[in-house]
Design a protein around this nucleic acid. Sequence first.
DNA 1: GATAAAACGGAGGCTACCTCCGCAGTGGTT
DNA 2: AACCACTGCGGAGGTAGCCTCCGTTTTATC
Lengths: 198, 198
Amino acid sequence: MDARGQQGRRPRADVQRNRVALLEAAQRHFLTYGVGTSLEAVAKEAGVGPGTLYRHFPTREALLAAVLQTRSEELVARQEEIARLGDADKALEQWLRALEEYFSAFSGLPEPLMAAARAQDPDNPLTLPCDTVITATEEYVRAAQRTGYVRESVKGYDLFLAAISVAWLKGAGAAEEESLDRVRALVAAGYRKRNTEA
Amino acid sequence: MDARGQQGRRPRADVQRNRVALLEAAQRHFLTYGVGTSLEAVAKEAGVGPGTLYRHFPTREALLAAVLQTRSEELVARQEEIARLGDADKALEQWLRALEEYFSAFSGLPEPLMAAARAQDPDNPLTLPCDTVITATEEYVRAAQRTGYVRESVKGYDLFLAAISVAWLKGAGAAEEESLDRVRALVAAGYRKRNTEA
DNA sequence: GATAAAACGGAGGCTACCTCCGCAGTGGTT
DNA sequence: AACCACTGCGGAGGTAGCCTCCGTTTTATC
């Protein structure tokens, strides 16, 4: 009598319950210990056995991608906000900043993202979000090039690489915010046409 | 009767023999599998037990630092070569390139180097080489600033970070040489005063 | 309730880390 | 050359994390 599409029985209640518990536990652990955290510990904290974790999320990347979903949505929301700016240069700058925050969501995140970006393996659940942000970056770059702010030789992928590098630096913990700001300025000075002397 | 310093018996021959075998095996494995390779496998290939490996090199970082010693010497040799250039701008550029190669010696090397650079733990055997190259970078930057090539706001540490980031990108394998070249150009355009339009 | 399908969970096999200590190899001495 | 003392060897073993397989439990439906 229920309105689900075609056939098959209604999905079991415990599946959804466990999935949510796993995602919450995973987020906590990724935040605290980075993406390399023990998956067994995640399962234990979610109150399920390791088998259940691996059935829901067959690889670490799958779990990561699922946890990252929320952040991806935040990123889309930011895009709308950025679109309201009008100024293509400011938009690109803000977008890169948003990207960087996204990549720094958990310590160690840049690594698997890079692996996904490179391998183009359609089975890797991180490939999709990766490609999405690269494409978006290319558009911001094109827009800023049309209005003459950005060098013609710069490609969107380059700035994706720059953003993920800065995120890596941040996650490697090796630099205080002050150093990071100077690196960001370095990148900005690198892609802009105008030369703000200093 | 032999000319060793003060007292104690002569060091045993097997110690040196094992040390060399370990270093060779470690270098091979680091080259092939990256810095995360199995240390037990290294010991086995060197023909010694795990205990011997850990006695010689109590941590992975210690082994890494010892293997890196050769490369550090190469880097010093390069410095002399660079000094002969005369041009401070070219010198800085070449130094950054040499740094990047040094950091890319093994896949995954940037991670422990960053950790050492940040923690300033005197017990970490990677801290010393790290500090050395940072100091050297600062000098190259100062020289290039004196001759007016480089922005005053740039710090040596920033360019160290930039170089290690590019090495990370290379090791993460995510970028072909073409993309890396564009990122390098981005960094160069970022730290230079002169604006080479494009 | 009864039934069948779906999901659970933990035991178990695997690999790697690192330590500890009985034993073997080595340098010095006679 | 034979002995001694000691330094260094190496592997067994405890720990932890990965991932799978399958007997058991939970669930939706009738």
